[in-house]
């Protein structure tokens, strides 16, 4: 997958990703306010296939799944960060949004064109010609991502179990 990168710093929290004020709204409305308090034009200008790049502890804070869901809704293809808050990381993978751990995420600049292979754990920075090694996604989570997230994964599992029973 290839797209343009949007770069944020350390500790991007779930309150800026999914502001409490809009949590009662549907994802469409909520996503319009994603990251607005740190980058007001983000939701309007991000394009399907783009990447969101963070520093340390991306997604700190709440369990609200709308944080990764808003990014997915806006068409973000994958996240790249030095590290993630554990709860956010689980939520992103469960929604089928690849969250890639890359110690050198800080070398990516806003607007860089990237080619990202989540399973191989490899990023080509098409703008600088640099390639960045990432941590491969653990096998049990790679399977979840291949299924498209936890929902389709559960659908498969239930269909299998029901098949066995009938």
């Amino acid at each position: 997958m290839s797209g343009t990168s949007w770069v944020f710093g350390d500790n991007v929290d779930t309150d800026v990703l999914a502001p409490g004020k809009y949590m009662k709204s549907g994802i469409e409305e909520l996503a319009r306010h994603c990251l607005e308090s740190v980058l007001p034009n983000f939701a309007a200008d991000v394009r399907p296939g783009d990447f969101v790049v963070g520093g340390r502890n991306f997604g700190a804070g709440s369990s609200r799944e709308q944080a990764p869901e808003a990014l997915r809704h806006l068409g973000v293809a994958a996240l790249v960060a030095v590290s993630y808050a554990g709860l956010f990381y689980r939520n992103a993978i469960n929604l089928g949004l690849p969250a890639i751990v890359c110690a050198n995420a800080g070398r990516i600049r806003a607007g860089d064109r990237l080619n990202v292979d989540p399973e191989a754990g490899r990023i080509e920075n098409l703008s600088t010609g640099e390639s960045l090694d990432c941590e491969p996604i653990p096998p049990h989570l790679a399977q979840l991502l291949r299924d498209g997230g936890l929902m389709p994964h559960l659908e498969k599992r239930l269909a299998r179990e029901r098949g066995i029973r009938s």
Partner: peptide, 19 residues
């Protein structure tokens, strides 16, 4: 005890398990 998101909660409600 730890926090999880809604889809993961769905998994818990259906299976009674979590990784």
């Amino acid at each position: 005890m730890f926090g999880i998101g809604a889809t993961e909660m769905l998994g818990v409600l259906v299976t009674g398990e979590i990784w």
